[in-house]
């Protein structure tokens, strides 16, 4: 049995402010196998981004621990690649210089970082844009650059927080293919947040469903569809069954809402 790459042990988060305490996460626990693609879905405000911040070490949890490779990684930074909701490309850097930022921070010389990054840019659809500035790029291109920046940090685990949320449907579809290609090439463990159920099923090996605030895991759904998956798999019976199960959790019956 493959070992767990990333394990969350009873992660809890309470935000306290003058207005009172907000329970963002009640103990959340799950483990993710090495090399798998796991999506997290849940209503807006259920604590998905908070969970990612905790895994990335940017926020201390109120309780619990993050375990990576059987080591306590709570509160350590630079250990997982994290792509935040915005692309956050630096406007004063070229695409190439943006993409090598992670390596630069790790102390790799610019020259070596450039040499490493250039083939990737060419291979993953940014060829010819290396020396352009982010403002000259389309939304899809910017997302690609941001994702490559995350990947080139060379961490085993990658967290992606709604990376395609702001893209139009067509760009989104091509970005999904692109991401799967990257995942197949790099063999990373990916945790992916999205609010699009179709996207989650299409991409993932497993889906973690979270409840509305305070966030907790209400279901874990395996997606046993063979890869590579055709685009029209969305019409397949198994696909629809998984989708119904997801939507059941996300949209409670009307009567329950009114109560």
């Amino acid at each position: 049995m493959p070992s767990a790459k990333l394990e969350l042990r009873s992660i809890a988060m309470v935000f306290s402010s003058s207005a009172g305490a907000v329970d963002a996460l009640t103990p959340v626990s799950f483990a993710i196998e090495e090399g798998s693609f796991v999506s997290v879905i849940g209503p807006s405000g259920c604590g998905k981004s908070t969970l990612f911040n905790i895994i990335a070490g940017l926020q201390a949890p109120s309780g619990g621990s993050v375990v990576i490779d059987d080591e306590d990684a709570t509160g350590t930074i630079g250990r997982v690649g994290y792509m935040l909701q915005k692309d956050l490309l630096l406007p004063w850097r070229t695409v190439l210089d943006n993409v090598v930022l992670g390596m630069e921070i790790k102390g790799v010389s610019r020259q070596r970082a450039h040499a490493t990054a250039l083939p990737y840019l060419a291979r993953y659809g940014l060829g010819g844009f290396e020396h352009r500035y982010p403002r000259e790029l389309s939304g899809g291109m910017r997302q690609r650059a941001a994702l490559l920046r995350t990947l080139l940090l060379d961490t085993d685990v990658i967290l992606l927080d709604e990376p395609f949320g702001a893209l139009d449907a067509q760009t989104r579809a091509s970005m999904q293919e692109w991401l799967l290609q990257l995942w197949a090439d790099f063999r990373k463990t990916v945790v992916f947040v999205t609010h699009d159920v179709d996207e989650a099923i299409y991409l993932s090996d497993e889906i973690v469903v979270m409840s509305a605030r305070p966030g907790r895991v209400v279901d874990r759904i395996a997606v046993p569809l063979a890869r590579p998956r055709p685009r029209l798999i969305t019409n397949a019976r198994e696909f629809i069954a998984i989708k119904e199960r997801c939507l059941d959790h996300l949209a409670p019956p009307v009567a329950e809402c009114a109560a």
Binding site: L58, G78, R79, Y82, L84, K86, L88, L153
Partner: peptide, 12 residues
């Protein structure tokens, strides 16, 4: 602040 978090997430 998000850019700052990005930097820290890269281990800066």
């Amino acid at each position: 602040p998000d850019s700052e978090r990005l930097f820290y997430s890269l281990g800066a």
